[in-house]
Design a protein around this nucleic acid. Structure first.
Lengths: 208, 208
DNA sequence: TATCTTTCATACTTATAGTTCGATTATCGT
DNA sequence: ACGATAATCGAACTATAAGTATGAAAGATA
């Protein structure tokens, strides 16, 4: 077999397996999905799965990377050169929020949480920089703010990228995890709360 | 045996087990510690452990509660009625940072992350409100800000409690997880970055 | 046809949480 | 001190799932 066709076939198999795993992970959760499940649903034998992926975590990480591309793609789509700083900021927030709604299972991983939930055997795969694309997007957002002269003068770009990222993802995660508190103690629905938080947070970035 | 002595003995046994588990969790990590380990180190048989705790998660949760008391105790100690709003705010941040340094294993749990890292068998213990004490402290911090008239006039108390909590814990967690990025991309050490972030974040709360 | 390569089925290994139960030991009222 | 009751022990057992090993079958290659 030509090496071209061979490589294409390998890719095809990998994609099949990932697709099956994705479906099961969504359906039953990552923990509850076994390698046998994945094999059966993808219609390969388990041994073949292990030809293409060295572990369950390996599969999970590949999927996380896919979702990261989707997310950054969505963000890029809704922020262009025309969009002003403030609009861009809120659109970024919106994208992150909708992504968390759609794929709550992956959101935490994209935001830098420890890779998989369990794994007795700490495989300690090189924690390659999953968030780079996202940081780059935040970086260009902030540059826009500098260009339009709306950022506070004492803002430093690089640390602020991380700052924005961590605060926003913290806000979104807590909004998700503490739904009951939001409802009972704060008396706000999620969207209202998020809007309020993003607006308040915005004030830490801009001149007033 | 009198019910008083009996209860005290039960408490003694529980404490012993928790202490042993605490030590092992610190030493080898929660995942890597088995129930047999805990039994041996606490000097009970495994069956006895299961008399006092229904699962490993149960043990873990009890420890998390203990640590939450420690944390809120520390915060209460370093913030009193005399301390102004700004000082109180920075002291709160400091307490959270030192706590995360001392007990990184528990920090995420205290901050509302999913209870234990793994557990196939989702025991789904009622996710009782672990963060209540902390929220109350943040709430009184904000009230101080209102009293001293330093908070922005459009700040609403209840949602802001969650807002402050989630942003700060997000910042601390990312500072911990992205040490390499801080070093290589941001060129700041952790403490410098945290100081910068907390200062910037403060601006979202106060009048200027 | 002879030889790789890929896939398959199956059974095995290892690891650990949680359970069961009969035996043992300590405690207590009398 | 004695017999009942309760706490503890020990050890085997169940269940589950990740990952491995192996040899057979199917398919491509030349």
């Amino acid at each position: 077999m030509g090496t071209r066709k061979k490589a294409a076939l390998e890719q095809f198999n990998r994609d099949n397996i990932l697709e099956a795993a994705k479906e099961l992970f969504e359906l039953k959760g990552v923990e509850a999905t076994t390698m046998d499940d994945i094999a059966k649903h993808a219609d390969y034998s388990k041994s073949t799965i292990y030809v293409y992926f060295k572990s369950k975590e390996d599969i999970y990480n590949s999927i996380v990377e896919d979702y990261m591309s989707i997310l950054t793609g969505e963000i890029e789509t809704c922020i262009d050169a025309e969009t002003g700083f403030e609009d861009s900021y809120y659109r970024l927030c919106d994208c992150l929020v909708s992504f968390e709604e759609k794929y709550p299972k992956y959101y935490a991983s994209l935001m830098g949480e420890e890779k998989m939930t369990n794994s007795r055997k700490r495989t300690d795969i090189i924690n390659q920089d999953v968030g780079k694309e996202l940081r780059d997007l935040i970086s260009s957002l902030l540059e826009k703010g500098v260009k339009h002269n709306v950022l506070r003068k004492d803002i430093e770009l690089q640390p602020t990228v991380l700052y924005v990222w961590s605060a926003i993802s913290g806000i979104i995660q807590v909004a998700d995890r503490k739904k009951d508190i939001l409802k009972n103690k704060v008396n706000m629905d999620r969207d209202e709360y998020l809007k309020y938080s993003f607006r308040t947070f915005y004030e830490s970035l801009v001149r007033r």
